[in-house]
């Protein structure tokens, strides 16, 4: 594959005291790719995401985006062009749907305190543009009719969509989705798949954490598997599905009859 590399993660390690949550992980995401990240619970997927977006400062390793190394500050990462959603939805609950998306525009607008007080033509133009862009994103995610609702009052599936719309508002080149279909029914999951493809068609690469294997293998060009903080395999559907280490990680090792666990238990 000769696409330009967008995200280049090298040797990222995250230790919390004695616990190594993420260990020497390398990952690249190319322009226009959809990459999956799977692994059992507690494998360190979300920690890895937090290292990418600056919420955690990785103990070792570098994260570079379009060739420049990212500083570990969330707002600078977003400004550079990486936006994310959260595993447990983190909307601004008491703001309206439109306002949530407008907050996402923050890095792409410059209007400061003084222009907000003076409300000159430049301010009003920028504000109108932000609104237009936000409404366009709400149309895109199908939430335009609910623009004036408080985001806390949206049903669960729409809250997930709103988080994506809010992330897209920052004009990212790469979108990180942390379990976008958690808690969704099959139809909603199907709709989410469509949405991710539509996002890729806008020229945005996607890196997605998910537990729903069908979702992952339908969507992703490549999938990386993280087990106990280490990337054990990366590749297309066949590579991942046929890898014994992946099966072991998810289903456990086959019982060989002479295992030590049985004798341990007898003692």
């Amino acid at each position: 594959m000769t696409t330009t590399t967008l995200l280049d993660v090298r040797g990222v390690t995250m230790r919390f005291g004695g616990l190594t949550a993420v260990n020497q992980v390398d990952l690249t995401v190319g322009q226009g790719e959809i990459i999956g990240l799977i692994g059992p619970n507690g494998a360190g997927k979300t920690t890895f995401f937090n290292c990418l977006t600056g919420l955690y400062v990785p103990t070792e390793g570098t994260v570079s985006y379009r060739g420049t190394i990212l500083p570990p500050k969330p707002h600078l990462v977003t400004r550079a062009g990486i936006a994310r959603t959260f595993q447990n939805i983190r909307l601004f609950a008491n703001m309206t749907v439109l306002e949530n998306v407008l907050v996402g525009r923050h890095t792409r607008t410059r209007e400061g305190l003084l222009s907000a007080v003076l409300r000159g033509p430049g301010y009003r133009r920028a504000e109108a543009e932000s609104r237009e862009k936000a409404m366009e994103l709400l149309e895109f995610t199908g939430l335009a009719a609910k623009a004036d609702h408080l985001s806390r009052n949206l049903p669960y599936g729409e809250q997930r969509k709103l988080e994506i719309a809010r992330a897209l508002a920052s004009d990212p080149g790469l979108l990180l989705l942390d379990e976008p279909t958690a808690g969704m029914n099959p139809q909603e999951t199907r709709a989410a798949e469509e949405l991710v493809f539509a996002i890729r068609d806008r020229g945005i690469s996607v890196l997605v954490i998910e537990h729903d294997m069908r979702f992952i293998f339908n969507l992703c060009d490549r999938t990386a598997v993280l087990v106990q903080g280490q990337k054990i395999v990366e590749g297309d559907r066949e590579t991942v599905q046929s890898d014994e280490r992946v099966i072991t990680a998810y289903l456990g090792a086959p019982f060989d009859g002479t295992g030590s666990t049985a004798s341990e238990a007898e003692k």
Partner: peptide, 9 residues
């Protein structure tokens, strides 16, 4: 945290 992740300093 979410605000910072949305690019707010």
């Amino acid at each position: 945290t979410a605000a910072e992740a949305m690019g707010i300093n």
